[in-house]
Structure formats: C-alpha cells, structure tokens
C-alpha cells in the first residue's frame, strides 16, 4: 500500500486508475464526461496541487477486517449496502464505454437492491438456536401432514407485513382465509348439493377444498369471526329443506339422475320385451333387471354421457354397453 500525497481517494483506487488512463487524450475538451463509467459521470476532479494530508478520507474499514472475523456482528440486521463495510469485490451496473461493471464504491445500483448479508447461514443458525427457547415441542402425534389434517381440519391463513416505514399497519393484513375439506363436514346428498350451490366457485372440485375469504371488516379478528359465522350459516342452511324444494323437476337439476328417468323406464321395458321374446314370460322383478350387470353398465354409460358431456370414450362406452345388452357381440 502506498501513501503518496497525490490527489485521490483510497476507496476508489481502481476507478482512479481507469480514469487516469483515459486522461492523455489529444482533444481533452471533446471528451464527454458522460461517456465515462457509471458513477464517475459528470464529476469533476481537481487533479493539480498537493492535497492537504488532513483532508484525506479514512481508509474503508474493510482494510482492517480480519479474515476470520465474526460476520454476523459486522452486519447484524438488514441494512442498505455499505461499500466500506462489505469486504467483497462486488460489481454491479451497466458497463459503459466497453469497460467493466462499476465497482462497489459510490454505486447506487447496489444500494437499491435488497441484500441478504444479514442472513448468512451462520447467522440463521444462531438465530434459530436462541429462538428455540420460545418454541414448544412439536406434538409427536402430528408428524405427518395427513395427521395434521386429520386433527386440525380447519386451516386459517392470515398475512403479516413487516414495513420499514413509520406505520406498522398494512391494509392487507386484515384479510382472513378459511380453508376446509368439504368431506370433513357431515353432509348428506341433499345437504352437499345444496352447500355446493351456496358456495359457488369457492369450492374446488379437484382438491375438495372449500375456501372462504373475508376482507370486509377493518380488523383481522372481525374478519376471522365473520368467516366462522359464514361457515356455520352455510352448514345449517345446507341441512334445511325448504317447502319449495319438493317441486323440483329434472329440468331444475344440475345433473342427470338415473332413478326415475325416461332412460330407466325405456331400458326396463326393453329388457322385459327381450325376456318375453326369449321365454314367453315376464315374471322377473324390476330390481333384478336393474341389478343385472349389463343394465348397470348401460346405466353408467348413460349417466356419464349426460353428466360429463359427449366424448369419444363416452360414446364408445355407450355403444359397447348397448351391444352387450342386446347380445350383439
């Protein structure tokens, strides 16, 4: 390390070198200061005269850091990037003039981005170690996710926001989401259908999860209470049977019902006719015909086609079942 009294700053030694290399130009006035490297742009330097030795800036403290220093003590919390405290040759930014990327000194790009210098593995390990005293043991019965779901069917999701501002509050912190597997509710066929009608798109068929989100109240606690209230009301409403529900017609239903449908009626009469033609008598009870495996297959094919839409498989299934029924294959 050399300490001459020539002007310049210890921190930006490298930058200086580059700038000084640019200096010996034949047309010093045509050299555009904006064409220099990033943080250097537009800054004027007084290169002549001896600099007062007492005006020199301090050597950055990275020069004094030991190799085995305790880094979490140097950078204990989240902080904006400080070039004099980070002993790494970090570079960032757009390289101008076919140069290299600007170094860390006076580099605004490095200050803008969040850094995680306070969350080194060593620091995280230490934090975990001291925070253990605030935690309780995880219950042995809840080792797997399934066990957790089994014991705790209701899932409540809230979000906390940590801000570096004068206010601790965040409007989104009030939102509460309640999740529940619908199969965990005691519902009969009617109640299940009704609750599905009531919740609409809050139910996910794939995962069988009902999601209720509340954000209408200003406080989290109120929203939480409101989700609980909604769930209770939904459940109780689902179990009610209103008088007008008796007048339901097949057209009102969402899905095709085999029982009592014209298809069932038709297949019954067809089967009877076939039996009559075969044996001359039709004393087989209706249940037996329905329980017949071929009829069951046909029923499945019809239901599939009606409820899940026409597709080549469904049509093929329908064709096969009809052929079996008629003994054509």
């Amino acid at each position: 390390m050399a300490w001459s009294n020539e002007p310049g700053h210890a921190p930006g030694a490298l930058r200086q070198k580059i700038v000084q290399q640019n200096k010996p130009s034949f047309f010093p006035f045509t050299q555009d200061p904006g064409n220099q490297r990033g943080p250097q742009r537009g800054r004027r330097r007084r290169d002549d005269g001896i600099v007062n030795p007492s005006r020199r800036p301090m050597v950055p403290r990275t020069a004094k850091m030991a190799e085995d220093q305790d880094w979490p003590s140097v950078w204990p919390t989240a902080a904006t990037f400080k070039p004099s405290a980070v002993p790494l040759p970090v570079r960032m930014g757009f390289p101008l003039n076919r140069g290299v990327q600007p170094d860390k000194f006076g580099n605004n790009e490095l200050r803008k981005i969040p850094n995680f210098l306070h969350l080194t593995p060593v620091a995280v390990k230490r934090h975990c170690k001291v925070l253990k005293q605030f935690c309780t043991d995880w219950p042995a019965a809840l080792e797997t996710d399934e066990a957790c779901e089994e014991h705790f069917p209701l899932e409540v999701i809230t979000t906390d926001y940590v801000l570096s501002g004068p206010s601790l509050r965040h409007p989104d912190a009030r939102i509460v989401t309640l999740k529940l597997k619908l199969s965990r509710l005691q519902l009969d066929e009617h109640a299940r259908k009704k609750i599905l009608k009531l919740v609409g798109d809050r139910y996910d068929k794939e995962s069988d999860i009902l999601t209720i989100t509340a954000d209408r109240c200003p406080h989290r606690r109120q929203n939480y209470d409101y989700t609980r209230y909604l769930l209770t009301v939904l459940y109780l409403e689902a179990w009610k049977t209103e008088p007008w529900e008796a007048g339901i017609t097949p057209e009102d239903r969402d899905e095709f019902l085999w029982e009592g449908s014209p298809s069932e009626h038709n297949i019954l009469s067809t089967m009877r006719a076939i039996q009559q033609a075969d044996k001359g008598g039709s004393d087989t009870p209706e249940e037996d015909i329905v329980q017949n495996s071929d009829v069951q297959l046909y029923k499945q094919a019809v239901v599939n086609q009606k409820n899940h839409g026409e597709s080549s498989e469904h049509v093929q299934g329908y064709k096969d079942s009809v052929k079996r029924l008629l003994g054509l294959n």
Partner: peptide, 8 residues
C-alpha cells in the same frame, strides 16, 4: 410478508 397458516 409473513403468511401464517394456522390449523384449528
């Protein structure tokens, strides 16, 4: 942003 998923 810290998301809490608590089960009841």
């Amino acid at each position: 942003r810290i998301v809490f998923r608590s089960r009841i």
